[in-house]
Computed example of a mutant assay.
Amino acid sequence: MFAVIETGGKQYKVQKDDVIFVEKLALEKDSTVQFPVLAIVGEDGAKVGAPYLDGATVTGKVLKEGKGKKITVFTYKAKKNEKRKMGHRQPYTQVQIAEINA
């Protein structure tokens, strides 16, 4: 059984005990979070919401928060002697899926 959830403007396919990295959530470590469900696929077939399934949630436990790997952002305008080099680290929250409530 797996579910498709949405958080941070992105969709994730999750199963029980999966560990996913989502956009940063304003939650403490070891707290629980519930995600809305877009679709559930199980032994009895697929259920798809419009846009969400009523009464279906996915519960997860926050493991940690952190920042991703650094990427280099370089902006450049030709013939203007204008350039700028910056770095960026995207914040994330690591969540372990505890259960899928259909």
Results as ranks from 00 to 15, higher is better:
residue 76 Y to N: 10
residue 52 Y to I: 12
residue 57 T to D: 12
residue 42 G to I: 04
residue 53 L to G: 09
residue 36 P to T: 01
residue 27 L to C: 07
residue 31 S to L: 15
residue 45 G to T: 12
residue 66 G to L: 11
residue 36 P to N: 03
residue 94 Q to C: 13
residue 59 T to D: 08
residue 82 E to F: 07
residue 28 E to S: 13
residue 66 G to Y: 08
residue 96 Q to F: 11
residue 87 G to K: 03
residue 7 T to D: 02
residue 60 G to F: 01
residue 32 T to E: 10
residue 90 Q to N: 00
residue 31 S to P: 08
residue 45 G to C: 09
residue 74 F to I: 06
residue 100 I to P: 04
residue 33 V to K: 04
residue 99 E to S: 05
residue 83 K to R: 07
residue 39 A to N: 13
residue 53 L to N: 10
residue 57 T to F: 02
residue 78 A to W: 00
residue 91 P to C: 02
residue 91 P to L: 02
residue 49 G to Y: 14
residue 59 T to C: 05
residue 94 Q to V: 11
residue 40 I to P: 15
residue 29 K to S: 10
residue 34 Q to I: 14
residue 52 Y to W: 03
residue 91 P to W: 01
residue 45 G to S: 12
residue 79 K to C: 02
residue 17 D to P: 11
residue 37 V to I: 03
residue 16 K to V: 06
residue 89 R to P: 14
residue 69 K to C: 03
residue 47 K to H: 14
residue 58 V to P: 00
residue 91 P to I: 01
residue 34 Q to N: 13
residue 28 E to C: 14
residue 64 K to Q: 15
residue 85 K to Q: 08
residue 25 L to V: 06
residue 47 K to L: 14
residue 38 L to C: 11
residue 74 F to E: 06
residue 27 L to A: 04
residue 85 K to R: 05
residue 46 A to S: 14
residue 51 P to Y: 04
residue 98 A to R: 09
residue 3 A to D: 00
residue 47 K to W: 12
residue 61 K to M: 12
residue 86 M to E: 13
residue 92 Y to E: 02
residue 4 V to T: 12
residue 67 K to R: 09
residue 68 G to Y: 09
residue 53 L to I: 04
residue 46 A to C: 13
residue 28 E to T: 13
residue 6 E to D: 06
residue 41 V to M: 04
residue 36 P to Q: 01
residue 61 K to W: 10
residue 6 E to Y: 06
residue 16 K to W: 07
residue 11 Q to E: 06
residue 82 E to Y: 15
residue 88 H to C: 01
residue 40 I to W: 08
residue 85 K to G: 12
residue 58 V to R: 00
residue 19 V to G: 10
residue 16 K to S: 13
residue 93 T to S: 15
residue 9 G to F: 00
residue 62 V to S: 03
residue 90 Q to C: 00
residue 102 A to M: 14
residue 26 A to I: 03
residue 2 F to M: 09
residue 33 V to Y: 14
residue 34 Q to C: 11
residue 85 K to D: 14
residue 71 I to E: 09
residue 83 K to P: 12
residue 54 D to T: 15
residue 9 G to W: 00
residue 71 I to L: 08
residue 12 Y to I: 00
residue 25 L to H: 13
residue 50 A to T: 05
residue 78 A to M: 12
residue 18 D to R: 03
residue 91 P to G: 01
residue 37 V to Q: 01
residue 16 K to P: 07
residue 79 K to R: 15
residue 94 Q to I: 11
residue 45 G to K: 15
residue 66 G to N: 15
residue 44 D to F: 01
residue 101 N to K: 10
residue 21 F to W: 05
residue 100 I to S: 11
residue 35 F to P: 00
residue 34 Q to G: 05
residue 57 T to Q: 04
residue 61 K to S: 08
residue 83 K to F: 12
residue 17 D to G: 06
residue 99 E to G: 03
residue 45 G to W: 12
residue 55 G to M: 03
residue 12 Y to W: 03
residue 53 L to Q: 07
residue 101 N to Y: 10
residue 85 K to M: 10
residue 75 T to Y: 05
residue 81 N to E: 15
residue 32 T to R: 04
residue 35 F to Q: 00
residue 38 L to D: 02
residue 60 G to D: 04
residue 3 A to T: 01
residue 81 N to G: 06
residue 44 D to L: 10
